[in-house]
Design a protein around this nucleic acid. Structure first.
Lengths: 136, 136
DNA sequence: GAAATTCCTATCAATTTGGTAGGATAATAA
DNA sequence: TTATTATCCTACCAAATTGATAGGAATTTC
């Protein structure tokens, strides 16, 4: 249940980019250096953030990554789903990736289901109430 | 961020034992069969639950595992910490296993820290408000 | 004693994670 | 047009974790 480094680094990079004036492109190397992140690893993270519509990029000299939306429009639900995957800790309580447990005959009678439903709701509550702007 | 099978199975076993009349010992084999769990894997899980004071055991014929407390005295905070480990998703927001991030100069300025603090609090809130009895 | 059952250690295959390598592609500037 | 700069992309790899198995030691009951 640890947060992956991918998510941690991704969040840090987003925060970094949110502070940049005029949304000018910032190079991977600079973010990596400032945030103490392996450059190549960060490269792959920024790539997935771009592919998922959170970042824009520009190639060549003066290129780099930049935020594509305003920080207050970037919800943590989106960020977490893109970087960390489903918010639910078991597929049987997932909103977007629901899957029935093959070992569990009746969800309504399952203690794991009951507990994890509450955990999911409380986590969702946090993620829905935080945008990137709230974390600056 | 998935719930481990260890925790899932452990919770199911605890629930199972909570329903047993008079706290009579139940054999590993029976729990494993009823809950569709690999017996040997469950064996190791029940062992750690016993070592952490959640279960009692009895050897030989008529032996098995049994709850050592009443279900309403078994808090999910304890269960989760024993089975899944720290509730916090990053060590720098952990109550019981705090550790400073080596890459992060200032916690108060860290977006990951800010967000994960809230997530920890909300998860803690759920676990504190649920005992085993609440999941039956 | 024999049988039943937990206790314990060691091991293992599969998956996930964090990270690296190296070149392809595109944009800019000379 | 050519060199430079930077992202893009695929593949790969080592270490850690996870879920599970094996096999016997210890203990209790009959």
């Amino acid at each position: 249940m640890m947060l992956s480094k991918k998510t941690k680094y991704g969040l840090k990079a987003l925060t970094f980019l949110a502070k940049v004036k005029d949304r000018e492109p910032v190079q991977i190397a600079e973010i990596a250096k400032c945030e103490n992140i392996s450059q190549k690893f960060l490269e792959s993270i920024l790539l997935t953030l771009r592919r998922n519509g959170l970042l824009g990029s520009k190639k060549g000299k003066g290129g780099g990554y930049y935020l594509i939306k305003e920080p207050n429009e970037i919800h943590m639900t989106t960020v977490m789903r893109v970087l960390e995957g489903p918010i639910a800790m078991v597929p049987c309580v997932s909103l977007n990736f629901y899957e029935k447990c093959d070992d569990c005959p009746d969800e309504d009678e399952c203690s794991v289901h009951k507990l994890m439903l509450q955990v999911r709701d409380s986590a969702l509550d946090v993620y829905r109430n935080n945008t990137l702007a709230d974390l600056l």
